[in-house]
Amino acid sequence: MTKRVMTITVAVLTVLLLALAVPGGAATWPVKPIEVIIPYAPGGGSDVTARIFARYMEKSLGQPVVIVNIEGAQGKIGEMEVLNARPDGYKILWQHHVLHCLYLTGVTNHTWKDFTPIAVGGKSDNVVIVGKNSPWNSMADVVRDAKAKPEHFVMEFAPGTTNHFGVLQMLSEMNVTMNMVPKSGDNPRITSLLGGHCDITAVAMNSAMPFYKSGDVKILGVMSKDRSKWLPEVPTLMEQGINAELLNEYVLYAPKGIPSDVEAKLRSAFKSAMTSPELIKEYEAIATVANFMDKQETIDRLTSIFNGYEALAKQFGIYRK
């Protein structure tokens, strides 16, 4: 009996030690799995889009690309994880423009300039919705009624996020005021709309779709420059004379100071993933556009978005103290 136990023990220890022998030598990057930090829970837009491109990046990098969800504080905790990570390219971040909002409202103390932006990746649309029994059928109806009763209608928004900024921009362009009620999460806001606790709100198009199709909500406008491919019948806000935009646009970031050859490798692997026809098809299935931007384009895009949000934050008095 004791002998058998000893044998097992020795075998176990051998395996343990063998498993610990890490492949040595300075092979070319990457030599181990790459972690993509998603600062939100599994199942959301960020998570799903990342899980798709990770599979394609894996092919060109030859190492597993693992999705790691670190949620909390609207994305702050995941961002901090990458901000403080060793700049070796093994830990990267997939985050949308809420990164700027978190800085501008004082939740975080870092901007996109504290990372190495690899590239802008996918984007998806947002829509303005009202309940099925709402008298409103276009943004013009909303403007008319809201002008007549300032501060009366309940507008729910996700505080401190791109949604907050987009909604503020929309209301200021419409030149109306509403009773602004904070509520995070697309589904809670839709629930609230269905229960009649709120008159109007903005959510991601993907969240609204099932309820739009079942006829429970009406979509008054798409919050992008162009009509959505998935909602060709719905006009944009700009077509209705409201100059406001709200996009979910994802960006791949690496920690600041990663070696430039690693940066280049990440970018080219990401590019080949984002431009592969199969990925584009997979993204379309979840109503997302794969729009890869190269280095200069990405930096220009981030600069212009950041400046736009900064101006809005100052205009509406939510700028960091």
Binding site: E71, G72, A73, Q74, K76, I77, M80, T105, V107, P159, G160, P182, S184
Partner: peptide, 24 residues
Amino acid sequence: VGMDPINGIERFTLGYYQLSAGFS
């Protein structure tokens, strides 16, 4: 503990950023 649910103001985190979402 962590960000307040309305304004996103951090409370009682004692300087740990990991606590900004509160206790898991």
